[in-house]
Computed example of a mutant assay.
Amino acid sequence: MSTASPARPDAPVTPPSPWAAARARAGAFVALTKPRIIELLLVTTIPTMILAADGWPSGWLVLTTLVGGALSAGSANTFNMYIDRDIDAIMKRTKGRPLVTGAVTGREALVFGWTLAVVSTLWFWFVVGSPLAAVLSVLAILGYAVGYTMILKRRTAQNIVWGGMAGCMPVLIGWAAVTQSISWAPVLLFGVIFFWTPPHYWPLSMKFRRDYANADVPMLPVVATTRRVAVEMVAYAVAMVACSLLLVPVAGMTWVYAGVALGAGVWFTVGCVRLYNRAQREEKKLREMRLFHDSITYLTVVFAAVLVDPFLPDSLTVGLF
């Protein structure tokens, strides 16, 4: 009986086609920008612009603002990956990133990040026509790359709290693109995302607690008990819901938005309380990733209500004053 001969160890390896190599190369640079995070950030921008315009802004303004926001966030995320490439190599969750695998060199990443930063600033200033949005975009890049990644992340357990402010900037940028100003309504939306960030990110940190510990990153779930983390998550969730409801009188929202914001807020806060109860009982399965995904659902639902609200009849507006 014959058997297949084993492959020769010196058999030539067929190189990838130029097209496949170009796609892989482009994909590595796209990965530097963290597209999933950009997608979540842009979800909050469009509803904010519609609320600012009290209806549909021009399609061109929405498109150019989204492009500028993607370039700005991509720049911040690229700098983040460049600065964190040493700890990314240690953590299982991030060891496949382009700067760890060598798909992109450090120099290439820096050039790419700076290019996106400059282009996004000029884009907001001249194409979107909003110097204020351009300035806010620069602050967002600095806040994430310098404030969070360089200063806070490796030094304090509250890193994601203050570092998360950079992720709140898209609502201010979107509002500024429409009105060329900032008012209390976008500040409250900023507050919703600011208080949402810890109960959104800490469940993920719980899941990958060992990764962060091995990389010597003092995320709160690494240095504190799960019960304490859960208590803080509940507190932040309550503050988040309060900001979402304060938007009702400040921006003249309808009963529809008020009901959605209250219902979604109670649902998510109850989820945080349940996590606390599981931690209190010292259960092995905390179901933290379920809460992580629920947090994304919460933010999507609330901002969907913000998007719809300007198109509802004025008769539904909450008359508090």
Rank of each mutant, 00 (worst) to 15 (best):
A133T: 09
N80M: 03
V171W: 04
M49Y: 05
M81F: 02
A31L: 13
L63M: 13
R23C: 13
T45H: 00
V238I: 14
V104C: 14
W123A: 02
A215E: 10
P203M: 00
T115F: 11
L42F: 03
A22Y: 14
L204S: 10
V187K: 15
T44V: 02
R290Q: 14
T121D: 00
W162G: 04
W202F: 01
M253C: 10
P18H: 14
G55Y: 05
M165N: 04
L61N: 12
F29D: 12
L40I: 04
S295Q: 00
V248Y: 08
F126Q: 13
T48A: 03
W162Q: 05
R281L: 15
M289F: 09
S72L: 11
L307I: 08
I141Q: 04
A7D: 14
P313H: 09
V192T: 07
A21F: 13
V217S: 02
L220F: 03
V223D: 02
T33R: 05
G263S: 09
C272S: 13
D309R: 01
S58D: 13
G55N: 07
P6W: 07
S315T: 13
K153T: 01
I38D: 01
K34E: 05
T197S: 03
A134Q: 09
I151L: 15
L204I: 06
A24Q: 10
G263Q: 12
G147T: 08
M49A: 03
V273N: 09
P98A: 15
I296W: 02
D88C: 10
A28N: 12
F311R: 11
S5C: 08
V241R: 06
T48C: 01
D216A: 15
P57C: 11
A304D: 07
V248F: 04
A53T: 07
A117M: 08
G191N: 08
P313M: 06
D10M: 07
T179R: 15
I83W: 15
Q158T: 00
Q158A: 04
T197F: 01
L172K: 13
V217P: 07
W123G: 07
G164I: 00
T300D: 00
M289D: 08
L41K: 00
C272L: 00
P15W: 12
A166K: 03
L291Q: 07
L286R: 12
G167L: 05
V229H: 06
M165V: 12
I193E: 00
I173G: 12
R154H: 12
V248Q: 13
A258W: 10
A264V: 10
L220E: 01
A28E: 10
T48N: 01
V301M: 11
A53E: 15
V301T: 11
M81W: 05
V135W: 01
V229Y: 03
W202C: 02
T225D: 11
L299T: 01
V248T: 12
D314C: 03
F292M: 04
D211V: 00
T226I: 03
G191V: 09
